[in-house]
Write a protein that binds this DNA or RNA. Structure first.
Lengths: 108, 108
DNA sequence: AATATTTATCGTAATATTGCAATCTAAAAT
DNA sequence: ATTTTAGATTGCAATATTACGATAAATATT
């Protein structure tokens, strides 16, 4: 097999998993951190910053964008990528809730 | 290639990516949610709850455990798995910080 | 002791991901 | 109009992940 059986899980479970999966690679974490560091949301500079080839970075950016974690604005012939807070807020709410629920458990 | 170039990224970046990656599958999200739902941290019941075969579930549990997201306690011939709050707290802090930083940006 | 129960591991097939060279597209600059 | 620059897409090789049947290991029950 090798294919995730997404159809057996709820939409919400799949949605959270998709967000987490997109963040499940150090290059993509590095991209997010770079976007946070530079407050003018610089774009092609990501390629210079990361130890990866341009097509690889482009692919990682695409995955972050598909997951809704970043947005891309065309500016002339460059593209300006930046954090999309909404997705991070969703994740943060989800994890906060887990922590609250876990704290109320008396187990292990 | 196909192998992640972890050596090019910081330990912290790799650590966050590892946690996120472990949560990047709906079955593992479903396992976490099941553990939160049942406050007696029932174990083999996870296999009955999930639409996956026992070896598959066992493998997912192993990944969650390796990432430090759950703990496993032996109880007779059964094993009791439960949430490890620490890892979730780390993730939550990390995302809270991202949101704070992103909010202070005036970009896009 | 023999059997049942519970969970882990092995082996393997199917599929997905990672990474990059080569190439393409589109706007910018000359 | 040609060239340059920025970024995406294609194609492909290497590796990783997902899923499960078969089997093993370890404790529980009879």
């Amino acid at each position: 097999m090798g294919a995730t059986k997404t159809e057996h899980f709820t939409d919400k479970q799949n949605a959270i998993a998709t967000l987490a999966k997109a963040l499940g690679h150090p290059a993509r974490i590095a991209i997010i951190e770079f976007l946070l560091k530079t407050d003018s949301c610089i774009c092609g500079d990501i390629v210079n910053e990361l130890p990866l080839a341009q097509p690889t970075v482009s692919q990682h950016l695409k995955e972050l964008k598909n997951a809704g974690l970043i947005k891309g604005n065309i500016e002339g012939n460059a593209i300006c990528y930046c954090i999309d807070e909404k997705a991070f807020n969703n994740l943060n709410k989800y994890f906060s809730n887990i922590i609250i629920k876990a704290t109320n458990q008396k187990c292990c």
